[in-house]
Design a binder for these strands. Structure first.
Length: 142
DNA sequence: GCCAACGTTGGC
DNA sequence: GCCAACGTTGGC
């Protein structure tokens, strides 16, 4: 099983809309590195859902429910682009902000910082665990 | 194949 | 709104 992070601008497609729809076809990716990451996703892989631009933060967790297939929104031949399908798993109790991630030395190598413009990227297991830990309320919080 | 110009992403 | 990073396009 692998871990991933996907970015979305909340004004275009936000976590709230994702929850309401219950499932998302992750289309519109037009960068080869991001596409290659989509192609490596397998059903069951876990995906951090990140809001970019306004209040940048990881806001929730999703799961891959269908692996890569050709992007149906592309009409040009040959179609070089793919989509995956995602469903929500849980909202984080507390969004984990980009500022928090940048401030934590455990995230020194995270692709989110090192390749700030990439929209679909792998996340290491230790990074994934740490983000869930930061995003989860425990006794003593609040 | 190189590189300048230009467009896009995304943080601040 | 600005700008850094970086991907793409097109002239040569």
């Amino acid at each position: 099983m692998s871990y991933w992070l996907v970015k979305s601008e909340p004004e275009t497609y936000g976590w709230h809309q994702f929850i309401q729809q219950g499932r998302a076809v992750w289309d519109g990716v037009r960068n080869y590195q991001a596409r290659n990451n989509l192609m490596a996703m397998q059903p069951g892989d876990l995906v951090l859902f990140y809001h970019s631009v306004t209040k940048p933060a990881v806001v929730g967790l999703a799961r891959v429910v269908r692996g890569a297939y050709p992007d149906p929104t592309v009409t040009k031949v040959p179609n070089r682009w793919v989509v995956v399908e995602l469903e929500p798993v849980l909202a984080l109790d507390k969004p984990v902000s980009l500022g928090q991630i940048k401030a934590d030395p455990r995230f020194a190598a995270i692709a989110l910082i090192r390749q700030s413009r990439l929209s679909v990227m792998p996340v290491r297991p230790d990074e994934f665990d740490r983000i869930l830990e930061l995003g989860t309320l425990v006794d003593g919080d609040q």
